[in-house]
Write a protein that binds this DNA or RNA. Structure first.
Lengths: 184, 184
DNA sequence: ACTAACATGTAAGTAGTTACATGATTCT
DNA sequence: AGAATCATGTAACTACTTACATGTTAGT
């Protein structure tokens, strides 16, 4: 089974706060984390079955009049421990999507330990700063190596988007660290 | 043929500035736009063949001593017109990745018309502002609907990431609009 | 009368990643 | 001596999207 799939942790995390049907789950996740984590029915329904088979979630059928049955999924103790394991597992600084990974973990922050959350946001901040530096350096290199290239102004524009995004991310990390302090 | 694949336009665009081998291409795109557009050999080599078959690119084999032959791809007139078509095609404001789409188009901005580029960045800015508003509203709704929910602080943190990213994007659009003015 | 929401699910397709195979050459 | 670069390619896999099928009920 691929319980390694990060989306299955997103589902598991959502189930940790509230028992849900696939329909509920998709709507909830779409609304709350849809801006950085996509989910579709084509994923949710099969993954819920996988989670249930792996005993990380339990199912109860709720029959309804005139409507198809609703399957209510609940997280099991094994599921909670699997979720916590994931939340506390080390970050891979090589991951191209470290930002999305950390944000997803933070969304389920209620189930992780305060010092772990803080450490991971700090790691993300360092990663973002590193990226900002890299992009700044890449911009300088572009200017020198392609001085008279008619593409240069456009290439610089996209390079600047990298720098801007990285700086914005680092700033958000700062704000988040402050917010997290208030929760101890 | 799926010449609709956006990555194939990324390749076509890169070929518009410089004839390249698959190896070159991957290195170049990875370095320049890797932060928002991923490419791998598993995509590049097959897509180059598709482009060549569709007559959007031509190939020349360059035999080398001791090394595997190098295939040099050049964009054809048909390819250039296909590229321009794409660059000038209307943006889909429903696209969840409008930012990446516009950035990619801008990277190849040399091949599009100035007023089109500007219009698309303006559209992106409006899109970003709309998102910022949506996230701000969603944050307020969260506070009211989940007042005593222990998940609330964490949910607010991820919501704030959406707002922050959207605002940063809108700011970058402003800077970019200024930069584009200087190119007329 | 119609539209949206409720509710499940799957089949087919698209996109992309990872890992392997091959092997000389140039740099450290 | 060993690592990195040059250079191509594919097979298997993973992840995800889109579109369809089905049908009621509640709201406008």
């Amino acid at each position: 089974m691929q319980t390694k799939n990060t989306t299955s942790f997103a589902i598991l995390g959502a189930l940790a706060s509230r028992a849900s049907s696939g329909y509920d789950l998709k709507k909830f996740l779409e609304q709350q984390i849809g801006h950085f984590w996509k989910i579709s029915y084509g994923q949710v329904y099969p993954l819920l079955k996988v989670l249930a088979q792996a005993n990380l979630a339990s199912v109860k059928e709720q029959t309804q009049k005139g409507r198809p049955p609703r399957y209510l999924y609940k997280i099991t103790p094994a599921g909670k421990s699997e979720l916590r394991n994931w939340l506390h597992s080390p970050l891979d600084p090589e991951s191209p999507n470290l930002d999305r990974e950390v944000m997803l973990r933070l969304f389920f922050g209620r189930f992780s330990e305060a010092n772990m959350r803080t450490r991971q946001v700090e790691q993300l901040k360092a990663w973002a700063q590193g990226r900002a530096d890299q992009h700044a350096a890449a911009g300088k290199a572009l200017k020198q190596q392609h001085e008279s290239n008619p593409d240069l102004p456009f290439w610089l524009i996209t390079a600047s988007s990298g720098t801007a995004a990285a700086i914005a991310l680092a700033d958000w990390c700062d704000q988040t660290l402050t917010a997290l302090k208030g929760l101890k």
